[in-house]
Design a protein around this nucleic acid. Sequence first.
DNA 1: AAAACTCGATACCGTGCGGTATCGGATACT
DNA 2: AGTATCCGATACCGCACGGTATCGAGTTTT
Lengths: 245, 245
Amino acid sequence: MAYPPSGSGDGANRDPEHADRLADAVPTRKRPHRSQTRRQVLDAAFTVFSEHGIAASSLNEVAVAAGLTKGAVYSNFASKDDLVLALMEEHAAARTDAALAGFASADDSRHGLVDLAAALVHAMRADAAWHRLLAEYFAMSSHDPRRREGLRRRRREVRDAVARAVARVADGLDTELPFTPAEMATVMLALSNGLAVEADIDPDAVPEDLLGRVLLLIAGDADTGARTRSPSAEDHRRGTPQPDS
Amino acid sequence: MAYPPSGSGDGANRDPEHADRLADAVPTRKRPHRSQTRRQVLDAAFTVFSEHGIAASSLNEVAVAAGLTKGAVYSNFASKDDLVLALMEEHAAARTDAALAGFASADDSRHGLVDLAAALVHAMRADAAWHRLLAEYFAMSSHDPRRREGLRRRRREVRDAVARAVARVADGLDTELPFTPAEMATVMLALSNGLAVEADIDPDAVPEDLLGRVLLLIAGDADTGARTRSPSAEDHRRGTPQPDS
DNA sequence: AAAACTCGATACCGTGCGGTATCGGATACT
DNA sequence: AGTATCCGATACCGCACGGTATCGAGTTTT
């Protein structure tokens, strides 16, 4: 509550993203642009939060990790909550887009569900850090009506997007799915998330291809002769692959 | 680190759970027994933690909710971590036992999987508060190797128990399951958990019987003529049922 | 060039936490 | 009954956090 000390809230930002690229003579801006600082903070926040968890991380840690100070953080974000929110929104959007784009291209191919599953699997395994963050955010949102509502809306969007995708794929299938697209989307998200959590706790318990196999099975393994459970004979490594961060 | 002020650590507890039930003349013990106080604290902790989350709750809140003070809590638990751990262990054990017992009785009946699904569904819907807690605990354990290892071991036990149960049920089936019991157990846990999370965020997105239907489908709906989705025709309410707390 | 403004660094504050020392009344031992 | 012991209440400590005020270097405007 109570808006940030000053600026930042009142639109009308000029965003002077020009007028310094015209000469090197102007000796390389000493002060970085606002958006750059914001990025640094956001990236650092992701790193730090991924490492120790959101609750256990202080804004100071984030600032230091960004090569800045707390003052800089507070100059760009109204509060810790604000920072966390921004981070989640950004990543969530990116994630969703990536996942959906990844299988939208499979629009034509008949085995769209396989691709969709693969996309989800990939997103899940590659982004262990993100999943951890998401899980914590879910947990902390459970208790705060404000956050909860926001999360609900966002989750709904994602679910609907997945549902639409499912519906599109299902159209191209001969057999009918045993669930409505909405239900299917819910199951897919739940399963993806749930398996990510299990894998996070005990990587050995979650074979790489488990999600894919379950989804195929649910889909009625209509199109597939591929009951074969080992698509790539060499993709055997388990253990959370330490994505990046 | 550094053990609690005194006592409590050195085994050899007499556990004087007797010798006061012999006369009412002894006018109703003024001071409750250790174990009773412990129970009060544990119960209060569950309530408080469920309400605001573990991280956001202070030991003082817990103590007050228990009708005690912080001193009492620290007299019974070495630290906040210790309290949380005790709470989780206890509830986890109880949950597992209940769930497994609930379907172990279905050992003879041929439609064991239906019962198992039902048991999981019930556990999931009835214990929304517990699921929330578990989710938060998962999240906070991700970042702490110590807790993480403990959780891994415990999770493995649960998984194995479910796997054994699945194997037993699968034996009685004519068709074969498309997964190993271990995989099946993982999927069941992940799905149960995942759906609980989704339901927690947006109850409307998760129909009451969704988990059951998915499990039946995965099981190859072999044994079932019982596709009938309404075991109790009146159990229709959705929306997190506000279990208790 | 000089005024006006932006933004991040520094220093600081209040708060509420986890945890500790201690004390006193109730209980168990003999 | 007298005494040793237990256990929870009270009071307190140190600390690190989120957040704020302010100042000055850097940047834009006129």
